[in-house]
Amino acid sequence: MNGHDFTLAGVRLTALPSGALWIDQARALCVADLHLGKSDRMARRGGALLPPYETFATLDRLAEDIAATAPEQVICLGDSFDDLIAGVELAEEARLRLMGLQAGRRWIWIEGNHDPGPVDIGGSHLAELALAGLTFRHIAIPNAAAEVSGHYHPKAHLPGAGWRPAFLADAQRVILPAYGTYTGGLRSDAAVLRALMQPPGQAILTGRRALARPL
């Protein structure tokens, strides 16, 4: 899978090149910040008319990861929908695609700041989830331990690769890169991320293969 293996609180994790996290012992696939319906929300608010394909692009990539890993559960770490209306008004085709992906497995929607409530789409809606000794939530809490979160859309730099969306991991937590197609990145040296991550830590860049570097 070209992934990068590491451990958090004794749990073996794999950072996939796509930006998804594989938790082998729970056979769980975890993705953060899908921001489905982002172009829809911008158009609705009178902003730019972005190409309305990002929901399909995101689901296409998620479908590939699911096909490759055959997870028993999928955890979406919040901001799965760009807002709650986007969740409600998701195109019928996208809704059907999602239902297809959910078939035969447990599906958990963690709430995020963009989607702070249940959406009328299958799966369980939770504020946070405890699984395999890890806590899954949208926004990292300082001093928390064994925590898997998203929200910040981190990106990191490598000579030759430039800035790419990246996992940030230290002994206490891992912060996932944004999985959604229309998402930007926050540099790993931003103050808020430096305050959260304690050395020694690593950044795992996404791309054709997962590339780890020290933070």
Binding site: G47, A48, L49, L50, P51, Y53, E54, F56, A57, Y152, H153, A178, T181, Y182, T183, G184, G185, L186, R187, A190
Partner: peptide, 30 residues
């Protein structure tokens, strides 16, 4: 299609904006 200047956008942090390359790739594909 891309707006450089929106009132107060710069302040909201870089993760809110994303590269135009993504739009290019998406259009090329879809």
């Amino acid at each position: 299609l891309i707006t450089r200047n929106t009132a107060g956008q710069r302040k909201s942090g870089r993760q809110a904006t994303f590269s135009s390359d993504i739009l290019y790739d998406t259009l090329t594909k879809y």
